[in-house]
């Protein structure tokens, strides 16, 4: 690595823009409120759920809170969609979150590594396959929850287009998808962002926006290499000969 593009050991890299960090906080709050106010409705015949409903001021109040935060999440989802469209379709930036065949290979190699059949972990770019999985699960979940939720909220309008059983199906899907979403967050997000040995107790990058060089090298070596290349190119130097081994 040539001298000019060399980095200090304690250099930090910008991982998330303020806009993205704010989106995460909105998502965090809305998801939590929706999960709590939704699950107590789904399981309203359980004593704890009913107690919580009455504590919050009754079922109609709970529905009002749920729908308010559903709107907040829907607006956030639309905003997110628009910014993604702008960034990747209009500005044609490199789509780092799109799943690629490499992600499948990475997942397989990761499992081989866990099983002791491989010496090293696969090397990841900006987002590893676990993060992509969670992101797209979130996208899928939000679309399903949004569609089915609004179908239940506006049954009269929905049944002008669809037959009545779609409303009942929407309710079934909304409830089941909620279980899937909450369990996934509890398992996968806890594992990826909190309990993972790499980041325990909390991956602060999503709140501070910054990630250390050490973590970049360990968790996102391909992105690090690309950044170095870009720096070298900007400085008018040849690309660094030394790339992290794959």
């Amino acid at each position: 690595m040539s001298v000019t593009v060399a980095t200090h050991e304690d250099e930090t890299f910008i991982r998330f823009a303020l806009r993205q960090r704010l989106e995460h906080i909105i998502l965090l709050v809305a998801f939590t409120v929706l999960a709590v106010t939704g699950l107590i409705q789904k399981f309203n015949q359980a004593a704890l759920a009913e107690g919580t409903i009455q504590f919050l001021g009754g079922i109609e109040r709970v529905r009002f809170i749920h729908r308010t935060f559903a709107l907040i999440l829907a607006i956030e989802a639309i905003y997110h969609g628009v910014t993604m469209f702008y960034t990747f379709v209009l500005k044609r930036e490199r789509p780092t979150m799109l799943p690629t065949p490499q992600d499948l290979k990475d997942a397989w190699q990761m499992i081989l590594y866990f099983l002791g059949r491989r010496k090293e972990r696969p090397l990841f770019d900006r987002y590893d396959f676990r993060q992509k999985f969670e992101y797209w699960a979130m996208v899928w979940g939000t679309i399903i929850m949004g569609l089915t939720g609004f179908m239940m909220w506006f049954p009269i309008q929905t049944t002008r287009i669809l037959s009545g059983q779609w409303i009942v199906a929407a309710k079934a899907a909304h409830g089941a998808e909620a279980i899937l979403a909450v369990v996934s967050i509890l398992l996968w997000h806890m594992y990826g962002a909190h309990l993972n040995a790499e980041v325990f107790p909390l991956d602060t990058a999503i709140f501070t926006g910054k990630i250390s060089k050490e973590r970049m090298l360990r968790e996102h070596p391909l992105e690090y290499a690309r950044l170095m290349e870009e720096r070298a190119r900007a400085a008018g130097e040849p690309a660094p000969v030394e790339t992290p081994k794959t």
């Binding site: 002008r160 009545g164 009942v168």
Partner: peptide, 16 residues
């Protein structure tokens, strides 16, 4: 404002 599709939004006490 309900129309003819609407009543089936309730399963009429049936289990699907």
């Amino acid at each position: 404002n309900a129309d003819t599709n609407f009543p089936a939004a309730w399963t009429a006490h049936y289990e699907p």
